[in-house]
Amino acid sequence: MTSDEDALMLGEQAFRSRFILGSGKFSSEMMRTVLEHSGAEIATLAVRRANAGGAENILDSFPPGIRLLPNTSGARSAEEAVRIAKLARELGCGDFVKVEVIGDSKYLLPDNTETVRATEMLVDEGFVVLPYMYPDLYAARALARAGATAVMPLGAPIGSNRGLLTADFIRILVEEIDLPIIVDAGIGRPSEACAAMEMGCAAVMANTAIATAGDVAAMADAFRLAIAAGRAAYRAGLGRKLEKGAEASSPLTGFLER
């Protein structure tokens, strides 16, 4: 199999890159540079009230061919998420939406119950829905049943750069859910993005880790390489760990009649 065949399928669309870039905390010019270095073909963005006098148009930052993935940040309920998603669609960048419902302003953890409801409603409205969620197996199953296109569990609290704190639970989703699992939030270093990909995640999303790096463009390169390396390792099949000395015990199979 060539690497060209290893496409990330989301809805009807195939992507070569498995890096989803969050567009927060970048200037327009920086955004273009980061996109180029990251190789990302998908970028998220948010919907906010417009100020009179019109600031720069963020859409100018994205070259054609970049799939825009509006999020529903700011939504505290399913209904608000649906409202924001519809406004985003009205702004004219397609049917993809990253559902994000956060009802806790202290920890900013996603509300899985509302997220499932929002996903159900948005799938009914014809959206391609990628829900951001806390990695809970039942919620992930409910999202799959609701018609989500992928599931986006958090690795650690949003913006925390603390890595894959939820690795064991994300691994369960990788095993049990027949949808692309995309780690969103918390990834702080390329090594963590690589680990998520080795585990079998379909893609990784990052924003703060790059936006707050010393050299933003170089860090975008590092993430691109790490994600590709993790994916290649996953596809190659990990080798065995060397055992730390054998357990001394009498043979377990000596009773057999051969």
Partner: peptide
């Protein structure tokens, strides 16, 4: 077989 035995899952 060895590869399988080395895996967690």
């Amino acid at each position: 077989v060895r590869a399988a035995l080395a895996k967690d899952r």
